[in-house]
Design a binder for these strands. Structure first.
Lengths: 147, 147
DNA sequence: TGAAATAAGTTTCACTTGTAACTATAATTA
DNA sequence: TAATTATAGTTACAAGTGAAACTTATTTCA
């Protein structure tokens, strides 16, 4: 067996995926339990908070979700009364999405939980380590994004 | 709006998940297309290569997969003739799993593709950066593993 | 012993997700 | 301007996934 044999525990894509899965599960617990929000729905709420009046396609761009996932999550949010969907008068194919008052309220309740979780996660790293990790993550991401 | 508002593009769990998803998709292409192997199946092959004669439960431990996923992936591999499943004579509930000759052949074909992909991924980082990223990843993983 | 509890693995059911087909509207161009 | 092409979003179908129930085998301990 060659000495560059494949050892999953050392294989970086696998380790990255392992870490990410744990973190995603923990985060999902924050919104799924008490609030009944899925990860996709949460991502959309966070985007509508920053960018009101955007369309489903724009949500898709900003969240890297495909349009079917966006459609389903937006439907779920509308059904729960957290998002309001209007038809654009400029282009009647497009939707114009916004959080409702109730949506903003829920968003405001979940946001601190999520931010606290991120803090608790990152407090194991020193400021220098965090900054480095940040840069390396960016570097890798820019690298893999070039198809 | 508070200044520690939630901005997904800066939110580390989101960025980690984004990077991981791209990498996982690319990797999956390496085995799914030509070889018809799923990511789960591939993980199991890689484990059986290093640890012959293990049981489904042991595969589960080593891959962090749940037992249902292991059961299904092993069934798929047996059906394709890549893995051989015997009943343990010491404990007839347990299975004893091994790659077949054909399984080893396929494994040997996929392995270099996967290793090359990892190399192409990491060659954007200097040896120092890589070593740092490695350490930080470990540190974060150990941190989140403590429930 | 033998009844109850535990363990390995599979099957089932409900839910999620991805791909492709479809509907409705808008833009293009012959 | 009418026919074609492209776009936004939804629906339908198939495949994947997770939780719980189930089957068979083993262990525990009264």
């Amino acid at each position: 067996m060659s000495d560059n044999d494949l050892v999953l525990e050392n294989f970086l894509p696998y380790r990255l995926s392992y870490l990410t899965n744990i973190i995603s599960r923990r985060l999902a617990r924050l919104y799924s339990g008490e609030f009944g929000i899925t990860a996709h729905e949460w991502k959309i709420l966070a985007n509508l908070n920053r960018h009101p009046d955007i369309s489903a396609a724009e949500v898709g761009e900003k969240t890297a979700m495909d349009k079917v996932a966006v459609s389903r999550a937006v439907s779920g949010l509308c059904y729960k009364g957290l998002v309001d969907r209007k038809i654009s008068q400029q282009d009647r194919r497009r939707s114009v999405l916004n959080m409702t008052a109730e949506g903003k309220k829920i968003y405001g309740q979940i946001k601190p939980l999520v931010i606290d979780y991120e803090k608790s996660l990152l407090n194991i790293l020193s400021p220098q380590e965090l900054s480095l990790f940040d840069q390396l993550l960016d570097k890798l991401t820019r690298h893999v994004e070039t198809d």
